[in-house]
Design a protein around this nucleic acid. Sequence first.
DNA 1: GTAGGGTTAG
Length: 564
Amino acid sequence: MLKAHHVLSFLNQCNNVNTLSQIHAHVITNGYFTIPSISNKLLNSYYALSNSLLLCQFVFHQIKNPKTLHWNSIIKAFSQSPNALEAIHYYNQMALFHSSRPNCSTFSFLLKACEKSKGGRKCKEIHGAIIRYGFVLDMVVSTNLIRSYAAFGELDSMRRVFDEMPVKDLITWNSMISCYFHMGFHSEALKLFDEMKIVDVGFDGFSLVHLLSACAHLGALDIGVKLHDLGSEKGLSDNVFVGNALIDMYAKCGSLDKAICVFDGMKNKDIFSWNSIISGYGVHGFGDKAISFFKKMLIDGVKPDSITFLGLLCGCSHQGLVDDGIEFFHLMSSKYGLRPNVKHYGCMVDLFGRAGKLEKALDMIENSPFSNSTILWRTFLASCKIHKDVDNGEKAMNKLKESGTLNAGDCILLAGIYADAKDLEGVVRMRKMIKYEGLMTAPSWSSIDLDGQIHMFVVNDRSRVDSEEIYSKLEEMIHEATIIGYEFEGRMGSCHSEKLALALGLIKSAGGSCIRIVKNLRVCKDCHSFTKFVSKAYKREIVVRDRVRFHHFQNGLCSCKDYW
DNA sequence: GTAGGGTTAG
């Protein structure tokens, strides 16, 4: 007969459900099932080997007097399943048994369950229980609490838990950075790193990945470079996650050369590395380069995924590589079994639309599984604006109206189409529509990173103490640009935020250095032309990242070749 | 330990 400790070691080695059933039978006939460590091991093994919650439940209900470890195992199993709410049900059952009390692990699993089952209110209840049971001081529990609150967008609760923790370790700090990052509070994530320096907890690869991604979103190149240096000093150069985040950061901050540098220096590359570099070239408008990296990727034996193709299609549409785009679109499903999603269709609509093939773009939408997608119709509307097509523009507008998601940006686009067609009545109609329907516009902004300090501007911004200086610099710039051929073509009295950011850049940055600006919307025709002339008049390289792509201005020309 | 952290698109 097998001794109990032999059974345990068998269970540990067991790697299939059939053997597990045999051991299970043996355990029952020999009365070992009453030994908590054995019944718990069985419970966990069933979940690990069969992934069947039903089997877990079956075993669990055979346990006469479940102990905390049993409850934890069943709660953990459910917390990882799509049926995560059931975990909370088991926790409530647990409270009815006086023989077992929840412990730290119980709460960690429960919080995971909340996160999965979108139980925002449950999260608060569990927080209460954590306080009652006296586990608030536990670092793991609190860290999980932070993540759960973040998952529900409860920024204040998240911060309160963090601030009230008497002891925090690196994982706690990293979790906070990660939460801020995922909630879109990129500057907050970077600020947290400054706080980390003060308390001296150090940092690791996990910290860097999120911080670099935050820089990527903000276009904060200077901070990104400092983080790169810190990582190298700490010997994190071979960390694939850090490397990938660096590629993305450099690409998104407009520094493709450095992105390539990091990419080439990586010992181990994965699909993220390739995708980041391909998308990087794609959004910068270098579709041909993106394609050449795609070919290298295949030679390297890396299988492309749907994000790879998104980067490729994006590159093709920005560079007007219509035939290549069509080829990749077909290739992704025919050769790689990847079904194009709405974003791939969006790229195709953009590809055809931008190239002036509006009927093809329309075909693409109407023959796609996403013919009601507002994203696709909005993309189409933007193409109609570029090609001054009133009829198709109105068609897109009607679709957007039907969907009930019409926004002010759509009306402004169509108003622009009417204006180009000299249809002033149409322009007025759009202005009225915005007013009467109470449509909102997202506030447009531009930012510039100067020595690690992010400066944000909105349209007609006069909020800064140095506004006087900025506006007088701008006047000088307009003068200089006009001398070499610039003509204003916007609305009188309106000054777009990127011109202000550009003026500040010229005032504050060293002569000859590259000026980098990030915008949340697309660059307008006038600002685009103005920036070209400024790059020539002041002999400066200017990189503008707009909502969808990059523009490299140099000596009066832009990398997009006025195709954007 | 039965417990907490990672990147690409949008």
